[in-house]
């Protein structure tokens, strides 16, 4: 059948649903074993963070779209959580092979890593559903939930979100071309503007690398 924008969107939604229908809302046995291998078991903090951020997300979603759509926000968030656990497991498997490491205590107890990964997973779900207004379950298309809305909701710096994107794409082989293109556009937008906001961790990184190179240079103030 000829590909139309609506059909492409439907394919994306169906593809995402295929991936996530079999995924779990909770960490898999494989993930639990990675957690158990950690010096500090991160399981409770991961579950607590998913719940806390979920409450914030649902509240912001309902504020943005309308209280009548709170349940839709909840469903979107849970799809994001399923994708989050699925990609986390895939990432750990590849890191295990790459680094020959089994103890991921530092990474799995890193709050920014988890928030970035979860934000990326939820962004994929939001972009998938946002792509086709008619599929928005009646959501008012005027409400702009597109990127970088998720960064503000989860109080995440754009540069930290940026750091997870490429590994996310590598870890989830079933992302559609549209989804990968969307994440790439996010990357470009972050690098072209969002990462250069005055409170961005990118400036710390630049300073650290300059200090390492022995150049005590001050990052230029951002132009207003």
């Amino acid at each position: 059948l000829p590909q139309t924008p609506v059909r492409a969107a439907m394919n994306t939604i169906q593809q995402l649903m295929m991936i996530l229908n079999s995924a779990s809302d909770k960490p898999s046995d494989n993930l639990i074993s990675y957690f158990n291998n950690c010096t500090v078991n991160p399981k409770e903090s991961i579950l607590a963070r998913v719940e806390n951020l979920g409450n914030i997300f649902k509240e912001k979603f309902a504020e943005a779209v309308g209280q009548g759509c709170a349940e839709i926000g909840s469903q979107r968030y849970m799809l994001g959580v399923r994708l989050y656990y699925r990609v986390m497991e895939s990432m750990l498997k590849s890191e295990e092979e790459r680094l020959s490491v089994h103890n991921f205590s530092k990474l799995l107890n890193n709050n920014i890593f988890h928030t970035s990964l979860l934000a990326c997973a939820v962004e994929v779900v939001m972009a998938t559903y946002g792509r086709n207004a008619s599929q928005n379950d009646g959501i008012n298309t005027e409400t702009n939930l597109s990127f970088p809305w998720i960064l503000n909701v989860l109080d995440l710096k754009a540069f930290d979100f940026y750091k997870v994107i490429e590994s996310f794409i590598k870890a989830e082989a079933n992302l559609t071309r549209e989804m990968i293109k969307h994440l790439e556009r996010c990357e470009h937008r972050i690098m072209e503007s969002l990462a250069w906001q005055s409170d961005s961790p990118l400036f710390d990184l630049i300073k650290q690398s300059k200090d390492r190179e022995g150049q005590a240079d001050q990052p230029e103030p951002t132009c207003t």
Binding site: S94, L99, F104, L107, S167, L175, I180
Partner: peptide, 21 residues
């Protein structure tokens, strides 16, 4: 995905990016 431009170098992964290597 052939048309995504991978930029991470050899030996760079999620652990290094989040300073957890």
């Amino acid at each position: 995905p052939q048309d995504y431009h991978f930029g991470l170098e050899e030996g760079e992964g999620i652990s290094e990016l989040f300073d957890c290597d």
